[in-house]
Simulated assay, not measured.
Amino acid sequence: MRLFKFSILLLIVLLVILSCINESQINNPKDIDAIEEISAARADAFNEGDAASIATHFTENGLLMAPDSPVLTGRIAVEEYYQEIFDEYETSLDSYYEDVQVSGNLAFGRGVADVELVPKVGGDTIYTTSKYINILQKQADGSWLTTHDIWNNNE
């Protein structure tokens, strides 16, 4: 009998929790559009060689997990990572999300990126194609910032 009462109580608690989830917080088109705009702005900044602008799209303690690199934490580390690339190469990026999912204040974007790096001092151009996941968090002001950026090359 106790197990039955506990099961009923647990069921009621779960129903209350589930009823608190507002459907407008799941895959809201406005949120998806905002997240896709962030992705486009980051790509534009990459193509312009603007490391500072890329970093502004990360949370203060956002993580950058690039291939063959240690995990970098924070906007300053993100900016320094990209600045090293821009100091050495002329860059071109074609990047887009294949899927964006939003649930409340968290979201992810799964995408592909084609990168071209042309050495500024001569040498062979580097071409890479990669897949990536961005995890984003909605801020108090309604904007979205990246908490995690991870990718690996398809080669």
Rank of each mutant, 00 (worst) to 15 (best):
F86R: 03
Y127F: 12
N28M: 10
I12N: 10
V118G: 05
L18R: 11
V13W: 12
D149Q: 05
V112S: 13
L117M: 11
A52G: 10
I150D: 00
V13I: 15
T73Y: 08
G104W: 14
S130L: 08
F46K: 00
I54A: 02
F6V: 05
D31P: 01
L72R: 12
L72I: 05
S130G: 11
L145I: 00
A140E: 15
S39L: 08
D124L: 14
N22L: 05
A55Q: 05
C20I: 14
F58M: 02
P119N: 00
N28F: 09
S53N: 14
T125F: 02
K131P: 02
D44I: 10
S143T: 14
D87M: 00
G123P: 07
E90K: 09
C20Y: 13
R110V: 13
A66P: 15
T91Y: 04
T128E: 07
Y89F: 14
N154L: 13
D141R: 04
E98K: 11
W144P: 06
Q101M: 14
I133T: 10
N22I: 00
L136N: 00
R110M: 15
I38V: 15
L11S: 13
G122N: 11
A51I: 05
D149V: 02
A43Y: 05
M65V: 14
E37N: 13
G104H: 09
A45G: 01
H148C: 01
L14V: 09
G74L: 06
R2G: 01
S24G: 12
A113E: 09
N153C: 07
N22W: 01
M1E: 03
R42N: 14
A52P: 12
G49W: 12
V112Q: 14
D33F: 05
L106K: 12
I26C: 00
R110F: 11
I135R: 07
A40W: 09
I85T: 10
L117H: 02
I26H: 00
E84H: 05
L64I: 03
A45P: 10
I17W: 13
D68R: 15
I135F: 13
M1C: 04
L10D: 03
F46D: 02
R75H: 01
Y82L: 01
T146P: 02
N27E: 11
L18N: 15
Q139H: 04
A55Y: 03
D114S: 07
L18W: 07
D68N: 14
L11M: 12
N105F: 10
T147P: 05
I17F: 15
D68C: 06
A113V: 04
L117G: 01
F108R: 14
V115D: 03
S143F: 03
W144R: 02
I35D: 04
P67A: 06
Q139S: 08
F86N: 04
D94E: 13
A77H: 08
S24M: 04
Q25Y: 07
L63C: 11
M1A: 03
V118A: 06
H148W: 02
I38A: 09
R75A: 00
F4D: 04
E155T: 02
M1N: 06
G122S: 09
E60C: 00
I32K: 11
V121D: 08
V16M: 09
A40K: 15
R75F: 03
S130A: 10
H57W: 12
T146D: 11
G62K: 04
